[in-house]
Amino acid sequence: MSKAPGISIKNLSVSFRTKTSTVTALDDVSFDIAPGSFLSIVGPSGCGKTTLLKILSGVLQPTSGTVLFDGEPLSRLKTQGQVGYVFQRPLLLPWRTTLDNVMLTMEVARRGMSRAEREAEARRWLKIAGLQGFEERFPHELSGGMQQRVSICRALAFQPRILLMDEPFAALDEITRETLQEELLLLWAQTETTVVFITHSIPEAVLLSEQIVVMSARPGRVLERIPVPFERPRTEETRERPEFLALASHIRGLLRHRDPVTA
């Protein structure tokens, strides 16, 4: 298993030039992500979360500032085959079974593995995600929550050093969402992967993360970096604890104070 890298973001700014003006998507953003940790970015729409994700995946170059990936400047070539993704849409291949969908990332990014090894690994992940017995099903035969579980298994199965998750549970109902949050923690505990998790949901960020970066909108700035001290494993009960609720309400206060529209 390759060691997860730390990520260091320093004075990062990104602006886009339009015909009439310059839009600043990210303004002087700095924070560090410890190797193997779970970091969430919370903020309203337009806070540049997606821009930040594009920077981290090497698709977009910053206007100024640096991003270090394990101490080295980040580039597309460096991140290729090292970064797993989970999006709001599961993005599964409809013509592949659950098992074959999970194997996709290994087929492409882990060529050294034999077919048998890939299959064993895919089965192992599906089992942890509670999808045993669904290996031969096609995506359209699965519920939205199950599809997203498959998508997470696919992203983790090739043991990426970083996992970028862009509002992965936003399209799911509340109950499925809470179940998947707890399952994600279970799956993540099996890896050394560094997770960057983007969400609109404050309780989600508090439950999952070791560190939360709270951001403001237009331009995207870091309002506060908050360490989350609760011990793991975090479960149903964690959500009910007064410290949990206090932290969630603190973050909510930060965001409301800044953005009267959502108040």
Partner: peptide, 12 residues
């Protein structure tokens, strides 16, 4: 789906 192709790109 363009996102699927980008996904494949990210895997190299």
């Amino acid at each position: 789906d363009k996102e699927l192709l980008q996904y494949m790109d990210s895997l190299g």
